[in-house]
Design a protein around this nucleic acid. Sequence first.
DNA 1: ACGATATTTCAGCATTCATTGAAATATCGA
DNA 2: TCGATATTTCAATGAATGCTGAAATATCGT
Lengths: 114, 114
Amino acid sequence: MKKTDAVAALAALAQDNRLDIFRLLVQAGPEGMPAGAVAGALDLAPNTLTFHFDRLRTAGLVTVRREGRSMIYAAQFEQMNALLGFLTENCCGGTPCAPAAECKPARKRTKVPA
Amino acid sequence: MKKTDAVAALAALAQDNRLDIFRLLVQAGPEGMPAGAVAGALDLAPNTLTFHFDRLRTAGLVTVRREGRSMIYAAQFEQMNALLGFLTENCCGGTPCAPAAECKPARKRTKVPA
DNA sequence: ACGATATTTCAGCATTCATTGAAATATCGA
DNA sequence: TCGATATTTCAATGAATGCTGAAATATCGT
């Protein structure tokens, strides 16, 4: 991950509502959840939510797909892991210090099992 | 670490120059380095640098001490580790997924050796 | 096609941010 | 104390941010 991407991802997470949104999506797992459900859970206006989703999406932390009239947003675990990797990579004077924390969904292994 | 602190730390790191500054301080180790050296290394105006140091300090990511006429800034590894902990804690639906990356200086164990 | 539901787009607004230049403060050496 | 070095403080400015309300778009059930 390049520094530019790291700054973008950090900026995307550096906001109260967006951090909540992302957290919620992470807990929802790779299947994601509809925008309306997020709006309901966090009590956010739909247009405000769209604004924040856009920022998360631009940062690569979230993806969207349409399902009927709902937009399903899902966390991008790989990007989050890349960010964690970038942050720990800066530690220890360059030498990797820890096995680097990995962020994966609780259950539901929809992705390639390594 | 509380969410408020995490947002503050993320915001502090979510800026090009500040990320550079913090990275430099991390590589400098717990002893830190004088403001002037940072200014020279990153080609930043001294007042701009003070502004960014303040933000990093408010976020708890950096500390200062005076040494002669120099101000020595040093990375707060514990705060950085707390942030990494907070971020990975949000993963995996609540259950800790990885041993959590730890950020410590390359050499020079000036701090308590656990 | 029509009305309802789900979400986005747009314009506007107050606030915060990052930077700059000029002046102030603190410490040191002679 | 004087001059130099190191850093901070202050005021000003343009750009970006987060939010709101109204209107637009897309999809569904009938």
